[in-house]
Write a protein that binds this DNA or RNA. Sequence first.
DNA 1: ACCCAAATGTAACAAATGTTACAAACAAAG
DNA 2: CTTTGTTTGTAACATTTGTTACATTTGGGT
Lengths: 223, 223
Amino acid sequence: MYQLLSRSPLFSGLTEEEIKKIFSRIVYQVRSYAKGELIASAGDECRSLQIVFKGNTKGEMIDYSGRVLKIEDIPPPRPLAVAFLFGQNNRFPVTVSATEYTELIVIPRQSVVTLMQTSEVFLTNFLNAVSNRAQFISGKLRFLSFKTLKGKLAHYLMELDRNQQQNGKINIPRSQEELAELFGVARPSLSRTLRELHHRGIIDANGRTVTIINREALLEDSE
Amino acid sequence: MYQLLSRSPLFSGLTEEEIKKIFSRIVYQVRSYAKGELIASAGDECRSLQIVFKGNTKGEMIDYSGRVLKIEDIPPPRPLAVAFLFGQNNRFPVTVSATEYTELIVIPRQSVVTLMQTSEVFLTNFLNAVSNRAQFISGKLRFLSFKTLKGKLAHYLMELDRNQQQNGKINIPRSQEELAELFGVARPSLSRTLRELHHRGIIDANGRTVTIINREALLEDSE
DNA sequence: ACCCAAATGTAACAAATGTTACAAACAAAG
DNA sequence: CTTTGTTTGTAACATTTGTTACATTTGGGT
């Protein structure tokens, strides 16, 4: 357990020994969830820091009509809801559920405060983690603010291309279904848009491999 | 200046004297901006904490096509970009500009670190502020994830109603133009949707005063 | 009371996306 | 190699929103 935790951003810079020592002084527990089980609903109060220890989880926003916007997967050894433990409105913004059998380490808020007082490294890590969350969410926001589907798609492809560095050849690590969920659109709409870009010779789409043919046109299209 | 700062969330719980003392130990400067002047562009690196001291500012996201999504106004004595000072991607997520003559207190990141080390109260405040930001942004995200304009509008109205506690009578503190910007839609579309809800007897809209007549229908409509 | 600028109402049409339904392709299991 | 379930392609049509253009109203100023 401590080995895994030492790879978590919250405890990076600390040795297993140090982590062990720190944990001996605080209260925490381990909870397990079956595949598909609900971990927290959007709106639930957030009183403890939870770290994904084993398994896998996902966070989604669900609107009144039941439409789902996938926010992200949170695999081990990442923490859940770091940014919602302090501040004034301590509620989960998303619904979190286990995508497979999952175990979480649950640390009550008070213990987190103790941790911060005990370890300066942890404090810094925590601060960075909260900032990173804010930055991540704000990236999502930016992404959703691209009004057109073409824009989102173009943006997404170029982002992937930048990360994968395969000079235009992109591997999409998701099904169209999942992509559509990520974009918050209907699946056939996404398919249609891909097709359109393809027909216009801007990309070459083949299964989960997409090749950018005309980068300029793609960029223009995100307008 | 210290009086104003003591009302800022970052320094709440500290007396003017304490703030004065704290500031005597760090480096900072005051910058002024003319009405309409750009304070920071989205993507600019964020190296310092900036506190709005005088005037008023706004933050907006601008997509490739130039469409604008207003994020928020940041009046004195609130800080800019608290959540983007730490973490790994220290870049402004929004374009910030002065909506009138504005003065900012600029505190370099290193000095902020010093502040946190000096004052535990400041540290707690800072942590809370960053969390609050994350929560705010995440609220925005949730808001944008309501797919239909009716949904956004219904959500917005019910939110306002809850805050204003005037039992269905709502004062909208914005022009339709501004509202449309906030929602990320075109102004006539918003007008049309208001009209529709009105015609269907769900709300009574009169200038900036809106009365919710049929709460259930409004809720259903956000589907 | 009158004028002007800004805000709002409205309509006609264009464009984007959702919905539904089904066919085709694919992939894993036997 | 077939079966079976999942993913993807596609089309027709409905709905929502954008765009443009103009009329109307409102609220200050003088």
